[in-house]
Nucleic acid binder design. Structure first.
Length: 447
RNA sequence: GGCCCUAUCGUCUAACGGUUAGGACGUCGGCUUUUCAAGCCGAUAAUCGGAGUUCGAUUCUCCGUAGGGCUACCA
């Protein structure tokens, strides 16, 4: 059997989104699983709608995703070849130049139409089995606006053949285009490749994913701080599964496990919440070094950030964020107290839902200073807890409002935040000197 | 309208014609923590409807229904 060649053929008429990308992923997985090759073809025959910025976006997105193609073609580079075959078809009277009524702006007075032989056309789809259509109703459809401007159906057939594409893996929206492409292939005496029509990816409103219904550009996911392999992992599970209970697979594992016969027939809705959880999973798999390196890409370089402290914050970041974008937010939000002095509000210092006893709070905080001194430098959160909890529990025993009467003011004094990591972790990271200093500042506010 | 495709928890999905219809995400509850997050434990929830075929249909067939796609001088 010949080596498998698949292709991804986006048109540069919009930003690459998850629907396009999922098609690329499956096409890539199918090729790589069999040791075949994957090529990229920019379908830019529609000069009116094709834009350089969209073409660049495709390259940019694929580079970020590390979806490497063996070869890259631009359809417009094959004009001479298209013209040659168009002329051949007309010479053989299999197509003809037709006079047209101009209905819309941009319409030509003459176009090239294909002489449709009509009849039943069937092909075997790798995912759906045999599909049969009567092509008679298609009529003599247009295959080119002029000899130098072939239309999609014609260009695709010629290019797939010239580029040695053996398997066309594309979206379900092309099922009804396939029969007409097959009759063009027959007229040209070209071999018909294998087809695999993927189920569509839908927006939550159940329509085909598009910019209109809120689909993000792939590059947006990059800018939001998603891991490319997380997106790859999530998307490969939209319409496919390996047949066992695994949900988190690396790219190599996906290539190994991919089996086109397990591809779903029904379309799937793109669920960003689940993507987020898959991304969180892969962020946590990262080593602290890798995590830090990726994190630095997301921190505004102009923002001076204590890299030593950032290193200490990694486990908190891994535990609390689902994207690097979120992690970056935390640096100036709930985790900001690691990098700068907290700004304290006197009212907030006394525990919530407890009678306000500033004096009691002062006593509670003062009671922590001594135990804190006994802590070794670099004590773990568990060690800190072992030291602090007895004080809090003693306070509770004295019925001054429970452990919260100590723990809340302590946490708030350290963080200045309504929500933050627990006080033990904070002390462990901040160190006993800094912690003691913050506690004294809090006391000073109260007295 | 015509043609084509599809149909299992809210979502992604598993289940050689025989399972208490399984997992994951979400949601809800509990534990833990007097914050938040995480973690652990638990719960909720599905075979679109109707006929067949069969001893037995989620699974096979047909008919409905619903959704989607195509129906361009877009791809």
């Amino acid at each position: 059997m010949n080596k498998v060649v698949t292709r991804f053929a986006p048109s540069p008429t919009g930003f690459l989104h998850a629907g396009n990308y999922r098609t690329a992923v499956f096409s890539y997985l199918f090729a790589k699983h069999t040791g075949g090759s994957f090529i990229l073809r920019i379908e830019d025959t529609d000069t009116a709608r094709s834009k350089k910025e969209y073409e660049d976006n495709i390259y940019e997105a694929l580079a970020w995703l590390d979806l490497r193609s063996e070869k890259t073609y631009r359809q417009s580079e094959h004009k001479a070849r298209h013209r040659e075959l168009l002329e051949k078809l007309v010479a053989e009277n299999l197509a003809y130049v037709s006079k047209e009524e101009v209905k819309n702006e941009g319409d030509r007075e003459e176009v090239i139409r294909f002489r449709n032989p009509g009849g039943l056309v069937s092909f075997t789809d790798l995912i759906r089995g045999e599909i049969t259509t009567d092509v008679t109703d298609l009529g003599d459809f247009v295959i080119a606006k002029s000899f130098d401007e072939p239309v999609f159906h014609f260009a695709v057939v010629v290019d797939d053949s010239d580029e040695g594409v053996t398997h066309v893996v594309r979206g379900e929206d092309h099922i009804s285009n396939t029969p007409r492409q097959i009759i063009i292939q027959r007229a040209l005496h070209l071999e018909t490749p294998q087809y695999a029509h993927l189920p569509l990816i839908l927006s939550p409103d159940r329509t085909k994913l598009s910019k209109r219904n809120g689909a993000r550009a792939i590059t947006d996911y990059r800018d939001l701080g998603f891991l490319p392999d997380a997106l790859f992992n999530y998307l490969s599970f939209l319409g496919w599964n390996p047949g066992d209970d695994r949900e988190y697979l690396t790219r190599d594992e996906l290539i190994e496990a991919f089996d086109i016969s397990r591809v779903q027939k029904g379309s799937a809705i793109f669920d960003e919440t689940k993507l987020l959880s898959v991304n969180q999973h892969w962020m946590r798999q990262l080593s602290d070094e890798d995590f830090l390196a990726k994190m630095m890409d997301f921190v505004n370089p102009s923002l001076s950030i204590d890299s030593e402290m950032l290193g200490k914050a990694v486990s908190l970041l891994k535990e609390r964020s689902k994207t690097f974008g979120e992690a970056r937010e935390m640096l100036s939000g709930e985790l900001s107290c690691l990098f700068e002095q907290p700004c304290l509000d006197k009212e907030r210092l006394t525990a919530k839902e407890l009678p306000s006893h500033p004096r009691m709070t002062v006593l509670a905080l003062e009671g922590l200073l001594e135990p804190l001194k006994s802590l070794p430098e670099g004590a773990s959160p568990e060690a800190v807890k072992l030291t602090i909890m007895p004080v809090a529990n003693a306070e509770e025993a004295k019925e001054k409002g429970g452990r919260g009467a100590v723990l809340w003011p302590l946490r708030y004094a350290l963080s200045g935040q309504e929500h933050s990591p627990d006080p033990f972790t904070l002390i462990s990271i901040l160190g006993k000197e800094e912690s003691a200093s913050r506690i004294r500042k809090a006391i000073a506010i109260l007295v």
